[in-house]
Computed example of a mutant assay.
Amino acid sequence: MKKKIFYGLLILSGILVFFPIIYALISSFMSTKDIISGKLLPSEVKLTNYKELLQNVPILQFFMNSLITSLVAMIIQTIICSMTAYALVFVEFKEKKFIFLLVMCSIFIPWESIFIPNYFTILKMRLLNTKLGIILPFLANGLGIFLMVQQFKTLNKSLIEAAKIDGCSHGFIYLKIVLPLSRGILSTWGIYSFLNVWNMYLWPLMISTRPESRTIQIGLKMIKAEEGTNFGVLMAAVVIVIIPSLIVLFIGQSQLQKGMTSGAVKE
């Protein structure tokens, strides 16, 4: 009986969570009249909303801008965080504790407090309206470094010591031993960093002043302003925005679950 109640609650929760996404998908094939009238299913399934969206708005340009910036930021951020964590765990140097303290302090600095300095830095570097200008402040992350440090500390130290005795370089140990054993946290952080950059709105809005350099979230706001009450086109744009997020989450679901508990138990 308890299992039935438990599974029933899970099913109900799943329906409540996914209903907005499912309704957005269904609404993208409906006319504005059907949406306003409160229909749950379209009177006739058509691709009119998608055709109108592609014709009137450079949605594909916005989409590609977001996809490129998110993928590049994810890859570089994961590399930098993992390399920094490796140095803090496996390399002995005098300033290690101080650097780790700085990393921890950076986690507690609100983004709003460094927003203006970052903007003026990008401005002086003449990187406005560029993908690099959007990505640059997010090439490293203190939380990512901290999580990877905790994960690397759980690795079998005897493997690392044996590799050092055999004369392996730090690069070899990092690439061939540490990274393969830390796929869970690397995948988790990759998903987190991708979604973080993909869903950004305020920073790309400040950095990109031209339509050709703007990201999908800004494009969605522009579509809302231009289309007004054309809810079918708006829903089509929403579907295009959420597709990459869902793909990333479904592909990395198993690794995400492993990464959430990595470093929690130290053997």
Rank of each mutant, 00 (worst) to 15 (best):
G232F: 09
M206Q: 03
E226L: 07
N230P: 05
P204R: 01
M206S: 10
T209R: 14
T215W: 03
I223R: 07
W203Y: 08
W203Q: 11
G219V: 04
M222L: 14
L220G: 12
P211V: 11
G228R: 04
R214P: 02
M206P: 00
T229F: 14
T229Q: 14
T209A: 11
P204Q: 08
I223W: 04
I223F: 05
G219N: 05
S213E: 13
P204N: 10
S213P: 04
R214K: 11
E226S: 06
I223V: 15
G232D: 09
M206H: 00
I218N: 08
W203F: 10
L220K: 10
M222D: 13
R210K: 12
Q217H: 05
N230H: 11
P211H: 06
I207H: 05
I218V: 14
K224S: 14
S213L: 02
L220N: 12
E227N: 02
L205P: 05
E226P: 01
R214I: 02
M206I: 06
E227R: 07
Q217V: 14
Q217E: 14
W203A: 12
K224H: 05
F231W: 15
E226A: 10
T215D: 07
Q217Y: 02
T229E: 09
I218L: 12
E227G: 01
P204I: 07
E227M: 13
